[in-house]
Amino acid sequence: MENRCESLYSKEVIKHFKNPKNMGEMKDADAVGKVGNPRCGDILRVFLKIEKKKINGKEKDYIKDIKFQTFGCMAAIAVSSVLTEMVKGKTIEEAKKLKNNEIVKKLGGLPAIKYHCSLLGAEALNEAIKNYESRLLKKDGDGFDWTTSLKKKK
């Protein structure tokens, strides 16, 4: 089905908006990131399932699964969807490097007044990663062998 909002949004935005990927809540998430934009009212929540895998002989944390929930406009929903696709399967290190302009590029551009939606997406992902890392530190306090884990990473 065609969508006539195309005058405002790119085909890629419409595609993600209409059939958002990885949408919904994750009950057993390892980390959650939530951000809101007080100006436009959008709220994004990103859930991460993180596991370890060996890459070139080194064990690394990677995003095994990712889901999102969004209260927002078409752009915010499309940003959320494309973002999850972009980082699913990536290591945490790689995911951390994701910039909002890469999201915009992947979506084939966003109208200038919707650019902030991409920032919100990148922020939500970062919050989720921060949440994961702070949990690791807490686990450290609870007897988790953080130093070994770090050594292993090196």
Partner: peptide, 10 residues
């Protein structure tokens, strides 16, 4: 806006 976007696709 999102409701409107879906309505538009119909």
């Amino acid at each position: 806006e999102a409701i409107g976007g879906y309505l538009d696709s119909y």
